[in-house]
Amino acid sequence: MCKEYFSQLNQLLKKGGTVIFEGFAFQTSGIPENESRSRGTQNREMLFSEEEIRAAFQEFDFQEFHEGEIELDEGKFHKGKGWVIRFVAEKNH
């Protein structure tokens, strides 16, 4: 599902267009079981890895890229520690 959207972004954005992204990553290790954690979705299609993000956005230059643990406070189901991928990238073709 998300990969289809990524493909559409590649087609729709002109050279110089910018993507700002944040999504939950597969990585959840490093967060102790006794700590509050936010895993985001349980739908594996909505979880991301650095490799698949970089492959999906090959036509983009990454200005910022971060994968790591953050503290979330975004409502009932997004509260606690979570592992995310965040990036800002500009289309170069």
Rank of each mutant, 00 (worst) to 15 (best):
K3S: 15
E4Y: 00
E4W: 00
E4G: 04
Y5C: 11
F6K: 01
F6C: 10
S7W: 04
Q8M: 09
Q8I: 04
Q8C: 00
L9M: 08
L9N: 09
L9I: 04
Q11C: 03
L12R: 01
K14D: 03
K14I: 05
G16Q: 10
G17I: 01
G17P: 06
T18I: 12
T18P: 02
V19I: 11
V19G: 03
V19W: 03
V19M: 03
I20R: 12
I20V: 09
F21W: 07
F21Q: 07
E22K: 12
G23P: 07
G23N: 07
A25G: 11
F26W: 13
F26N: 11
F26D: 13
F26H: 15
Q27I: 06
T28L: 12
T28W: 15
S29D: 15
S29M: 12
S29P: 07
S29G: 11
G30C: 11
P32M: 12
P32G: 12
P32H: 15
E33P: 15
E33I: 13
R37F: 11
S38Q: 08
R39V: 01
R39L: 03
G40T: 05
T41M: 09
T41A: 10
Q42T: 11
Q42G: 14
N43C: 07
R44F: 14
E45C: 00
E45G: 08
E45S: 00
E45W: 09
L47N: 01
L47G: 04
F48V: 01
S49F: 06
S49A: 13
E51V: 12
E51P: 05
E51M: 09
E51F: 15
E52H: 03
E52S: 09
I53A: 00
A56S: 13
F57R: 00
F57W: 04
F57E: 08
Q58I: 03
E59I: 00
E59Y: 05
F62L: 04
F62Y: 08
Q63Y: 06
E64D: 06
F65A: 02
F65S: 01
H66W: 10
G68E: 10
G68Y: 09
G68C: 06
I70Y: 06
E71W: 00
E71R: 01
E71H: 00
L72D: 12
L72N: 05
D73H: 10
E74N: 14
E74S: 13
E74K: 09
E74Q: 14
G75H: 05
G75T: 08
G75N: 13
H78L: 13
H78P: 02
K81C: 12
K81V: 05
W83D: 10
I85E: 02
R86C: 04
R86I: 00
F87I: 05
V88E: 10
V88M: 07
V88D: 01
A89P: 03
E90G: 11
K91S: 10
K91G: 07
K91M: 08
H93R: 12
H93F: 13
H93M: 03
